[in-house]
Design a protein around this nucleic acid. Structure first.
Lengths: 339, 339
DNA sequence: GACAAAATTGTAAGCGCTTACACTTTTGGC
DNA sequence: GCCAAAAGTGTAAGCGCTTACAATTTTGTC
């Protein structure tokens, strides 16, 4: 195979009998190009197998052809799922996906925001996955001027897609309530505090309210997102001596941990205690965990689509939209009617 | 904040009182730059917060500053783990990571190899994760001239890191044998066939050989990498009427499936049947699955390091190396001495 | 048809960097 | 000290694209 010279816009210009400039415009579908020219360019380009050099294009002021996906970590089920879905739609729109994991580390995160200005010249857009911004970070983000979209971030000045967390929690709690349980414990996200309730905790409380029940402080315990976090939280609950008949975990992995703890303490699920989570983690099916499913891949794909749109007609400064996708209760084997 | 003009190499040149060319060389640590100049440039650059424009650098014939990581899918535990580890070391070396998932689809895969030549001008290197190459793909890869490294790919003309699959399988099998089991079933990868044994199957067989045992065909069944695959395979085994006292699954997820099937059929683990897998999936700890652990993140990081090295001193055409990382038997609750 | 306005196309000047090559300074052997 | 070789530095020509702006063609109107 001959290492042939790179096909440049110049070659396309010659073959189509037009100027470089016209070719450039035609290729990018800018206005002021006759249909005839458009067609000739398209033909020449495809005949030559021409693809613009990202570097040259970028240097001259055009786009880089890539967007960055930023996630708190890349290893969790949720993120890898969302990332892959986003990568697919970005790829189909001709964008490369550069992956940036904050690795759940403050230092990495700080580094990222400090470097944002530089990143801005390497990518055209930013897709943020569940990264909670403090005011300073928000400012840096706005200053860098990158087109942005996000997943799971409420109240941001760009397009966002997520689920209604409060509603999802309400669904889970409501399910438990409907089964006759009223001594409900909750494994709440550790971001939760009495001052700033998380949406999921709010949903939990609202469901209780609706049944004229109140949240008993002893039945609330903080848990991180991992299995072990859930296990520890559940043990904490058990050793407090409280006896809930059902447990709502803020996410499936925490629920897995709760399941382990319960088993360790000789409590049978769902005979003695019902357990429900949120997510529909792939393992949940396997373990028979009742849960409220959220469409993870859909969220990633949707957000990516929004970003692409924004990237294409970068003129229109349309209002940032916030799309909430549906969640769905999935009843499996860890919840049962109270005896 | 003033939208200040981009800091260019020109600015550094002026501040350091040297020519652009010298600055360029100093920055890239090329030879033929005096220590004095080197120091002056470094100082000026850091004072100005200068960072070379990737686009300009690339266009002028330099590097792109990014490498592509290619995985069969991005959603599995294994790959997301390896990808994050690789992303970390690449990032530390100043490279952006562009993620490419083949999405387990032949069409995507074909597209990828067809586009390789284009990709070659957007990235400096390629990190392949467990993608089995057919001869044509291999050729395309070599033709594109990209620096390459890989994880889990034996016998390739570039640096590779992986584990000794045969040995890992041997470890697992040996463990079972050591517990007194001799009616062993194996859930083998579905890539396995009588003609081309997979390394893991070979390890299984070797362990048996060493105990003067032979592989009974009825006790061999193919299973994909998923939980459901494992479940179906185990059910197949059970309904065949064979009664193994222990099962070796080629990966943990298949083992999970086996666990479910066994439970469904009223067989108790490890009382009636022992089960072991390979991987040490995060869920294995949770489920108490005995397994042979492989260092996933380490493999990704190691391969990324190898690639970076190769990228830096691109002169030295050193021999491709193949590094095998250690695997370790982890005894948990699904394996027990035969009664 | 004539002419101004609108639509299309072309010219040429960069974007910020690398690198071949020319030029200047330093080094070291005698 | 002298001079060639080595080491360091500068000049300038691109890399392949975008985009003002100028030039040309087409269109529409009276």
């Amino acid at each position: 195979m001959v290492r042939t010279h790179r096909v440049t816009i110049q070659d396309v210009a010659v073959l189509s009998g037009l100027s470089i400039c016209t070719v450039s415009r035609a290729l990018r579908k800018l206005p002021n190009v006759s249909d005839k020219a458009q067609a000739r360019v398209a033909e020449a380009a495809s005949k030559l197998g021409y693809k613009a050099s990202a570097a040259a294009s970028r240097l001259a002021g055009g786009s880089t052809g890539s967007v960055a996906i930023v996630a708190p970590t890349a290893t969790s089920w949720f993120f890898s799922q969302a990332v892959e879905a986003a990568e697919e739609v970005l790829g189909d729109s001709g964008y490369d996906t550069v992956l940036i994991s904050l690795r759940n580390k403050a230092s990495v995160r700080k580094q990222f925001f400090a470097d944002l200005e530089n990143l801005a010249q390497r990518v055209d857009g930013l897709l943020l996955l569940n990264v909670d911004l403090d005011p300073g970070e928000m400012e840096a983000l706005e200053a860098c001027g990158l087109a942005t979209a996000s997943v799971g971030m409420g109240n941001v000045p760009w397009d966002n897609v997520g689920i209604d967390d409060e509603h999802a929690a309400w669904q889970a709690t409501q399910h438990l309530l409907g089964l006759g349980h009223w001594d409900l414990a909750v494994l709440s996200s550790n971001e939760h505090s009495v001052v700033t309730e998380t949406p999921r905790f709010r949903g939990f409380r609202r469901a209780l309210d609706e049944h004229h029940l109140t949240v008993h402080p002893d039945l609330v315990v903080a848990a991180g997102p991992g299995i072990d976090d859930g296990r520890r939280a559940m043990i904490e609950l058990i050793t407090r001596g409280v006896k809930p008949t059902a447990v709502f975990a803020h996410c499936d992995e925490a629920a897995f941990g709760a399941l382990t703890a319960l088993r360790e303490y000789g409590l049978s699920v769902p005979k003695n205690v019902s357990v429900i989570g949120i997510d529909d983690h792939p393992m949940s099916w396997f373990l028979g965990l009742s849960t409220v499913a959220q469409p993870v891949a859909d969220q990633g794909a949707f957000a990516a689509n929004l970003l692409c749109e924004r990237l294409l007609n970068n003129e229109s400064p349309h209002q940032p939209s916030n799309h909430l996708l549906d969640t769905k209760l999935i009843e499996r084997k860890t919840t049962r009617h109270k005896r």
